[in-house]
Design a protein around this nucleic acid. Structure first.
Lengths: 318, 318
DNA sequence: CTGAAAGCGCTAACAG
DNA sequence: CTGTTAGCGCTTTCAG
């Protein structure tokens, strides 16, 4: 026996039952709002529960055989990036309608940490996993899928397994950005992005390259395409005091882009979250079909920065 | 018996034990990395576990008497507001160092929903609660506190109980904003805020009023003080095309405030989150002292909008 | 309408 | 080094 055990822990159903002079099962019935309990009995039990500060232990309830857990796990790169927190919001909204509770963790885009976090959630018996992955190895999840664990990938498809996935139409988005700039007569368009391993960026980059093959990139570009919200903002800072800034189209919309007059390829992160949640909710409800791939549209929002036309001639010096 | 029960659920420790020909307890020891197990035995168990796709059930583990849960609940107004998601990030960071898992939910600033969400987390036996409250009645939490549940309030103090709390120094922040504007010779300063029941805003508003009592507010103000990030951004939009915008100081820093040249009363939301987590972590570790109140400093960041001086005279027309 | 018994998956205590 | 027993808090049979 340990020395300084706190006197009482949380009250249990047994204590409520004892205090109200009924059996465990009757107390359980009352507290779960089941029918077929005498009003007087119910009142006694409620009184005892209130007096003790009793709360049902959902953990214990869910431990019972066959009982489904009511939590869903989400792994995201960085919760403080508005793009991701909006996704999380959408997921949460959809899950709440289902009585499910979201458990979130940020992976810092670190594959190893991601793996650790996923394992932790699996061990906590979430009923589904939603992942914005930074990893390139998802074989360990294949086992889970076979065991019936619903897994959906958001924004970035898994590298080596098939699973429900929802991604943006990066190809169309990037193409639209570049074509828009070409329409303003730009012929030297620079891309600013990180050369990360993430498919998201690779796709956007590939589309960009395709559109650019015929162009000469030697002199300074007259227009820029930035591949995500962070980078767009970085570019804006860098270009801040330029007298003659290049045209700019950024992937991802962001707060204040309107005020700053930034043309973007916009999309709807909350909706992406909702649809992702939908994917796993269907699975939880027993949907058995093959993995689904959802492609979310993007749209060009013109606000000025992308409509600056190219200088008439190639004036290399001011 | 239900008709279409899936053939196998997740494998259990018992199955791993059976497959590897050892007892339950030995399998448990191996999978928990305890010592005093023969290497050969351990290898057999690991092999069986891998073959079955076994994962320890943390829920079951934590159900055991005396075992502490390893999750912490967070209720926040809106996860997609960067101010809050940064707080969440800070919390998460601190919690992770402790091996604790964060469970988050957005209350939409709705007191009733908040109560429901808190109850849900309590029933899930989180080991502590962190709350950015929208409610004015916290009596139900007093019961929890007495039962030993650590509860900390973030950004907004509880109305009717004493508990660990971390808030910004709203009073000093608002005073600094107004005094800064007064220093630029402004004498007609408008406040834009919502007259919500939230203490946060009431405090900022009260400080503002104090600083303003001697002033005449009849003509249009030459300067504005906006009471949070959302409102600052709203004001910026409203003032967008004004030829002669008033000076502006906003409470809360925000992304791109630098680019837009907005003077703000800044503070550190991630740090607020870390400190809040610290408060409950201490309690989880057994800290028994009286409720602590942490006051987080703010600081004025000058970026231009707050340094526009007042027009020399009261020229009522352009 | 109410209750007794069994057991969910796991680990602490106590033997061997 | 390994195994047995008991029990966490709850709900589900199955009987009263």
């Amino acid at each position: 026996m340990k020395p300084d055990e706190p006197v009482l822990g949380r009250p249990t159903l047994r204590q409520v039952a004892a205090l109200s002079g009924v059996s465990l099962k009757t107390a359980s019935r009352v507290l779960n709002g089941e029918q077929y309990v005498a009003e007087a009995t119910a009142a006694k039990v409620h009184a005892a529960a209130a007096q003790l500060g009793f709360r049902l232990n959902v953990i214990a309830r869910e431990l019972r055989a066959g009982a489904r857990s009511t939590s869903v796990g989400l792994i995201i790169g960085d919760l403080s990036n508005p793009f991701y927190s909006r996704i999380a919001r959408g997921i949460e909204r959809r899950l709440r309608a289902e009585g499910l509770q979201l458990i979130t963790a940020s992976s810092d885009e670190d594959p190893e940490l991601e793996h650790t976090l996923v394992s932790g959630m699996l061990e906590r018996r979430v009923s589904a996993m939603l992942i914005v992955t930074s990893a390139t190895d998802h074989a360990y999840l294949e086992v889970e899928r076979r065991l019936g664990m619903p897994v959906a990938f958001i924004d970035r498809p898994p590298a080596d397994i098939v699973a429900d996935t929802i991604v943006l139409d990066n190809t169309a988005g990037a193409r639209e950005a570049v074509e828009h700039l070409l329409r303003q007569k730009h012929r030297r368009i620079g891309l600013v992005g990180d050369l990360s391993r993430l498919t998201t960026h690779r796709e956007r980059f590939a589309a960009f390259e395709n559109a650019m093959t015929v162009l000469d990139l030697v002199p300074a570009p007259t227009a820029l395409f930035t591949t995500n919200n962070r980078i767009t903002i970085g570019a804006l800072r860098a270009l801040r005091d330029r007298p003659d800034p290049p045209a700019l189209v950024g992937f991802d919309d962001f707060d204040l882009a309107d005020l700053l007059g930034v043309t973007v390829i916009a999309h709807d992160p909350e909706r992406m979250g909702e649809l992702a949640a939908e994917l796993v909710v269907d699975r939880i409800h027993g949907e058995q079909g093959p993995a689904r791939q959802v492609l979310l549209p993007t749209r060009l929002v013109q606000r000025g920065s992308g409509e600056r036309s190219a200088p008439r001639r190639a004036t290399s010096r001011a």
